[in-house]
Design a protein around this nucleic acid. Structure first.
Lengths: 205, 205
DNA sequence: GGCTTTTTAGAATCCGGTTCTTGAACTATA
DNA sequence: TATAGTTCAAGAACCGGATTCTAAAAAGCC
């Protein structure tokens, strides 16, 4: 029934490549049908493999999802940290952060969706908090340093992540749901301006 | 196997009450086990009914979930609109909005979780955008009015929701995951201050 | 009290994820 | 190049949970 791509003997891919192929297949399924709606069979068909093989490489659907999501999150976080660290001043770091974020979201819609969904599902699990903590840590170091130097408004640590991540994640959500009519450039400028006003010292208390 | 609460003949509840009982049962299950993990049987046990009866009142698990989530969202939105409309000035409206939000999240952890999860799952569905649009509309009217009067910084409409909803929803997420150590009062003050800086006119462009 | 409609019980069904068994392909070693 | 051990693929079997279906009890109505 399913059109499977049976290879002739002798052309067996090496393990990491096969793993990759499953992940890629899953990613495109997740992206086009939604995460809950894709079945293992869908992934089988897309990867040209049978259930057994998939379960040989992964513990299950969740494992595949988590692997993809974890990678996506890791990639995003690395970019965030780089952007912040690479700025030559606080405003510059903020500009770079927002520029990176908007570009990432624009260029990786599937990964964006994955990252956002993960956020949701992870919360219920034992390991749930992990990513959140990771995110906070990633930004925390930079924020603490800048705040200590007086370049960034001093406030309750919890507020930093709320006020920084909030707009960024909300933007990602809107964008991945196709709800923004404004251009990426406009959003980028607006987000940067907003974050500057919230974070940088000066003005009313 | 399941301990069902069989009522004696003659004590049958009226329809809306029965519906309510199912919803309440489901809400507590969702809350204590997580949404994905609660089975229909769990809800049956909690409501003291059998599958058949539940399917008589609702189309399925999703229907129950959506009903609860829609109600939660409706309640929240109504409060938001009230808060904004009731302020005697823009800063006052913002203060009221944040105060309402923080209180709501504190007092209704189960509904908060539901609302946030709905956001996630809804995106994939045909009717997906609906709630988002609803949210934007709810705040949109107030924002447009204030902006036209010059009391609120003029910006791309999409940015309003990003910059307003972003921090609030992020706060709700953190809170419902038990990740804030700061007191509600602190968060409330901080959020209000942040939103004021972003939204109110004046200062750098 | 008999008739219709609503609600319930619970068995039957269906669907999708996971497990298990078998065998084929690869690897290393002699 | 046979051989033992290991990894990978196939696909049937299994299992749990959502949904559907049928019959019967309760409620409403005359």
């Amino acid at each position: 029934m399913l059109e499977r791509d049976r290879r002739k003997p002798g052309s067996w891919a090496t393990t990491p490549a096969k793993r990759r192929r499953i992940l890629d297949a899953a990613l495109s399924c997740f992206d086009e049908r939604g995460i809950a709606a894709t079945t293992i069979d869908d992934i089988c068909a897309a990867a040209g493999l049978h259930v057994g093989s998939i379960y040989h490489h992964f513990a299950g659907k969740d494992d595949i999802f988590e692997t993809l999501a974890r990678d996506a999150m890791g990639d995003y976080l690395a970019g965030v940290v780089d952007a912040l660290a690479g700025g030559r001043s606080s405003p510059d770091s903020i500009r770079r952060l927002v520029a990176f974020h908007v570009r990432w979201v624009e260029q990786r819609p599937a990964l964006t969706r994955l990252m956002l969904s993960w956020e949701e599902t992870e919360r219920d699990r034992p390991s749930g908090r992990e990513h959140y903590v990771q995110y906070s840590e990633a930004i925390g170091a930079w924020l603490r340093r800048e705040a200590r130097a007086g370049r960034i408004r001093r406030m309750e640590p919890d507020l930093y992540s709320t006020l920084l991540m909030g707009p960024l994640m909300e933007h990602a959500r809107q964008r991945s749901a196709g709800l923004t009519s404004a251009s990426p450039q406009t959003m980028q400028r607006g987000l940067a301006a907003g974050l500057r006003r919230v974070l940088l010292s000066g003005g009313d208390g």
